[in-house]
């Protein structure tokens, strides 16, 4: 590896480390996301009541909860920088792509943790039975990658707008329709009456392509958002 690559990697890692350390200090995002996921899941289960839910609905509920909590929680990534007034420092000391990569890694880990909590809560609360755990795990990883890739760029975008809060879901959801559809379908194949690995290959490919495309486009576009 050349020096430039190492410098870039260490820069991105430094951004990630800074965010992780700040997060561990206050635990604001983690706690909020945890509570959001649990509260919305409980609401869903209260709403459904004792009715048995088809696997399609189970998968859809899981991913809708994921999308909403991502839209609520991950938007903080850049707004907090603006609020603390640390944007300029970050802009001076690192390159745009490093910031994007570091924040992306942080958001991705948050999404994964979130998924873990949500899925285990689903297993308990709705009595969901997973037949192909590996497929579900891969779907969550690929879906989480696409989700955090898109959300990280849009979070940087809305940090530049006047009223930051409720804008992220509005911008995010239309873009994530392909991700939602593929992820729900792949998740369904991992549940009892689904087709397992062979049936889900198309969805997994789509999720991989979506994550790759979104992250590539975001890296290319990020500098336009980040610098004035």
């Amino acid at each position: 590896m050349t020096d430039a690559v190492i410098a870039w990697l260490s820069g991105a890692w430094a951004v990630f480390e800074k965010d992780a350390r700040l997060e561990l200090r206050s635990r604001y995002a983690i706690n909020m996301l945890l509570m959001f996921v649990l509260a919305s899941l409980l609401l869903v289960t209260f709403g459904i009541g004792q009715e048995p839910v088809s696997t399609r609905v189970q998968a859809a509920l899981l991913w809708v909860v994921m999308l909403f909590s991502a839209a609520v929680g991950l938007g903080r990534a850049f707004i907090s920088e603006e609020e603390r007034g640390t944007v300029l420092l970050l802009r001076l000391n690192t390159r745009g792509s490093m910031v994007y990569a570091g924040k992306l890694l942080f958001n991705f880990l948050l999404v994964l943790g979130l998924n873990l909590v949500a899925i285990s809560a689903f297993l308990v609360l709705l009595g969901v039975e997973v037949r192909v755990p590996g497929l579900l795990a891969l779907t969550v990883v690929l879906g989480g990658l696409g989700l955090s890739g898109a959300t990280t760029l849009l979070a940087a975008l809305i940090a530049r707008t006047a009223n930051r809060g409720p804008l992220l879901p509005v911008l995010l959801f239309p873009l994530l329709v392909p991700l939602l559809l593929s992820a729900v379908s792949a998740t369904r194949h991992a549940l009892p009456d689904g087709g397992g690995w062979p049936a889900a290959s198309g969805e997994l490919l789509t999720l991989t392509g979506f994550a790759g495309t979104v992250i590539t486009a975001a890296v290319l576009l990020f500098d336009y958002v980040w610098y004035d």
């Binding site: 849009l154 873009l175 329709v177 991700l179 979506f210 486009a217 958002v225």
Partner: peptide, 16 residues
């Protein structure tokens, strides 16, 4: 930026 980002995700919708 948003317009282009949306344009990039559109082919997936057409495919999915």
């Amino acid at each position: 930026v948003y317009n282009l980002f949306a344009a990039v995700t559109l082919p997936f919708l057409l495919y999915v």
